[in-house]
């Protein structure tokens, strides 16, 4: 169903610029921590942990990444630290409770579909189930008033992409320029890139006219 992922900028790694004027001290310090400080699970229970890892895997499949981004670990850390976004929807509990409740609902939903838990569903069934969650085609009794779509989009998806595309792996994959201070960019015209940007990208036919 979903086409395999084709990387448009193979070989581009923003970390190659680590010593260049594109990086300053504070950015190096922040990224050093991001790359090295991965905490062990502190928030989720072992059972939830399996489901969360499977969820991250379905949402952001990384089987082609030589160094996969530890998404579940970062979500766990953010919840443990009580990181907030500034918004709590009135129909949602606090992020910690929402995650617990949502993961339980996903597990119950998976069990209703004949598996032990979300992690044990076949990949296609996982995809189908998440699409149903997004469409609201789920049994409401598992969700206890938690809005499935809001949980899935605003918490699960939003948090996973926030971690993945803040990571050099995700940023390099899309050909983003990466850190840029003190050096920014000179060439502002279409199809022009500075020598410290990714070389021109290459997309499969379906994305090219």
């Amino acid at each position: 169903m979903s086409p395999r992922f084709h990387a448009p900028y193979p070989g581009w790694d923003i970390l190659d610029k680590w010593e260049s004027p594109s990086f300053n001290d504070i950015t190096r310090a922040v990224l050093r921590r991001r790359l090295t400080e991965v905490h062990a699970r502190r928030f989720f229970t072992p059972a939830e942990w399996l489901a969360v890892q499977a969820l991250c895997d379905v949402v952001m499949p990384q089987n082609d990444n030589p160094r996969p981004v530890p998404l579940a670990d970062w979500i766990d850390a953010a919840l443990h630290e009580g990181r907030s976004s500034g918004t709590r929807h009135a129909d949602m509990p606090s992020p910690r409770d929402a995650w617990r409740q949502g993961i339980a609902a996903l597990e119950a939903e998976a069990q209703a579909r004949g598996a032990d838990g979300f992690a044990n569903l076949e990949r296609d069934a996982q995809n189908a189930m998440l699409r149903d969650v997004d469409d609201g085609k789920v049994s409401t009794e598992h969700w206890h008033g938690l809005p499935p779509q809001r949980f899935f989009r605003n918490l699960v998806l939003a948090e996973i992409v926030a971690v993945y595309y803040a990571h050099p792996t995700g940023q390099s994959e899309i050909g983003y320029g990466g850190p840029a201070s003190p050096r920014g960019y000179v060439r502002m015209q279409p199809n022009r890139a500075d020598s410290w940007e990714a070389p021109p990208g290459d997309w499969p036919d379906e994305d090219t006219p």
């Binding site: 004027p21 003190p182 050096r183 920014g184 960019y185 000179v186 500075d194 020598s195 410290w196």
Partner: peptide, 14 residues
Amino acid sequence: QMGGWHNWRQNAFD
């Protein structure tokens, strides 16, 4: 300019 001559690849042009 930001970064001065150390950032000459930008600043010599901009």
